[in-house]
Design a protein around this nucleic acid. Sequence first.
DNA 1: CCACAGGACGGCT
DNA 2: AGCCGTCCTGTG
Length: 279
Amino acid sequence: MESLVLHNVKDFELTHIFECGQCFRWKKEEDGSYTGVIKQGVLNVRKQGQDVCFCGELDGDFKAICEDYFDLKRDYSAIKKKLCENDENMKMASAYGYGIRILNQDPWEMLVSFIISAANNIPRISKTIENIAKAYGREVEYNGNTYYLFPSPEELSRASIEDLRALNLGFRDKYVHEATRLVASGEVRIEDILKMDTISAREELMKIPGIGAKVADCILLFSMRRMESFPVDTWIKKVMSELYVDSTNITQINQYAAHKFGKYAGIAQQYLFYYKRSA
DNA sequence: CCACAGGACGGCT
DNA sequence: AGCCGTCCTGTG
């Protein structure tokens, strides 16, 4: 087991990070820490005062993986300051979810996870993803417990549509099946999408069945470092029409957000989403 | 019984 | 181009 302690970490709250809707595989432990399965293995995170402690079994450079996954090199205070200029709503929202950080998760896992998120609720999404990992992912041991990595495209290729339906995917089974085939066959190359500009990457993602504008923006924001991506779901639609723009048209809301929040629109989205959903 | 939950899709007009 | 019914499943 490896560990890392970082002292006096600003803009970092476990609840804000893990409960703002960007991830599905982190669970709160009895001691208040969170344990999650990421691409490289199992990780546990806890806070003691202003210190953050990471423990886990990861395949690779432990410190580098943690810094990358939790976006630790980014100055969220500076971003908040910028977003809050002449914006009382954002001051409220960012003060509420002050410890939010955008996780840098695995693109393939997010692609599947957010296809599953369509017209779904969070407990069921989490359960479905666990079912998939347990059925097709590699088993890993950590701290006396068994966890399952999210399966690679090749591993998930073993699943038929019927298999996926049995794992509680519902009508999304055919989308995940086809998305898996596209990626495993190389018809869709995620490593190529990562190199594209955000507009092109979004278009490419939306060619995959089950991925519309909202799901594409989630994948871009939560796994491809596109901080300008602004996923508009039903909650954001409500918040935006209440506070900012007199429209419920998703395209118009996206345009407004791009103009108003610029290259950090995605971070603004998370503050607004968490504020609206929790407060 | 129905509405809705972090939408996408296909068939309409 | 925009609107609307439909799609699994669980909960209130």
